[in-house]
Design a protein around this nucleic acid. Structure first.
Lengths: 210, 210
DNA sequence: AATTTCATCCATCAAATGATGGAATCAATC
DNA sequence: GATTGATTCCATCATTTGATGGATGAAATT
């Protein structure tokens, strides 16, 4: 069995992949209920029937988008883990912030999709939830917040979530926040990175009992 | 001219206020496109016509919900400012975290509505945006991140946004995060408060040049 | 060349949705 | 008691939306 992402990689210009890409973009902008199958079909330049032919009903397509998204995020986390393996915690955080920011700002719909899937009650993919729980525990152990991957205290997971949310939010909210900060795209990215480092590093890099 | 909130305060059981409340709850759960006028009417136990009679078209009602939300948030911020006036920064943060968490967990749809209004492209209320920009600057000055309310550097505003987002996110994502952390409602609130203090206080409470 | 499979589009359906006109009800005012 | 104005519901409309059947053509297979 191959995931949606794998199929898209195998043939990135295939109709199925093109539909997935358009769906991803639009669902990321307007959420599940804010997108019609006609919007997606129009974006690709095809008939609705072709869309249904490849992906079945709308909800299946949405779930494929979420699976795809999840695969992408997981890939990034693995990449980060390789990059920072063995480094001290403050460096780990710095690299993680850099890489995740670059990834999310390069794929603006990713962060939005994450938020939509987390907060709106159009929640349907409990399979992905389980995966995220596993990532959380892995990161908590990697950050030295827990020793046993199987028994991570909620405090540790909550701290990882706090880091995660901070990064996601600035990426997803760019169209809202950037005008407020009166910055251009690159300036916004730079300020966000700096802010995240300012906020996150002191909390984790401080010595427990100075 | 009186705001939706004021009218609701004047007669909290009036039909208009009851509709507003139901709309707030549902829009907070499913977002603008995820809610139908029929859903709202059913929640209140009335006919759709009655809803249209009081609030006009769906979008007007949604904007009223956002205005109402905004008024509530502003009220809380003013309340916090009074509570912590003159206190040192670490205490200010601690109190702000406590009060905002209590408020948002007591009004679960508020945080969701904030996120929906910030991230989905159903954006229509630029009036509120201007208000939020003003809050940001006020808070930045109150936190000692800037001296002149009229000239707050983007870095300072970004730091305030980071704090703001952290709080909002844990509240909005409760239904998603809490199962992951395997906590009950109260336990979740406690862990969130602790986590926010752990993350946020060190960044701002540290001395600039030790 | 004939046949089968795959991909796409056109036409259309049934349900859902936002919205409205008009009748009925009720309370306040004259 | 009659009149007026406000409020609510019923019936209904026009659009939008998700979805499908079937025709058409292209490509592969025989």
């Amino acid at each position: 069995m191959s995931t949606a992402l794998e199929k898209a990689r195998q043939a990135p210009d295939s109709m199925k992949a093109r539909i997935l890409e358009a769906a991803r973009k639009l669902f990321g902008e307007y959420g599940f209920h804010g997108v019609t199958t006609r919007m997606i079909a129009k974006e690709v330049g095809i008939d609705i029937s072709t869309l249904h032919y490849h992906w079945g009903e709308k909800q299946e397509l949405y779930e494929a988008v979420l699976t795809d998204l999840n695969d992408g995020i997981r890939g990034k986390l693995v990449e980060i883990e390789h990059l920072v393996h063995g480094k001290p915690l403050s460096v780990r955080l710095e690299v993680a912030i850099e890489v995740m920011c670059d990834h999310l700002f390069g794929n603006p719909e990713s962060a939005n999709l994450m938020l939509f899937s987390q907060f709106s009650k159009t929640r349907l993919t409990s399979e992905i939830d389980a995966q995220i729980t596993r990532y959380l525990s892995n990161i908590a152990v990697a950050m030295g917040l827990a020793v046993d991957k199987a028994h991570v205290p909620p405090q540790a997971n909550a701290r990882v979530l706090a880091v995660w949310n901070s990064v996601i939010n600035f990426a997803a909210g760019e169209s809202f926040f950037r005008p407020m900060l009166k910055l251009d795209s690159q300036g916004y990215i730079d300020v966000v990175k700096e802010t995240l480092k300012f906020i996150l590093i002191p909390a984790f890099a401080q010595k427990p009992h100075p």
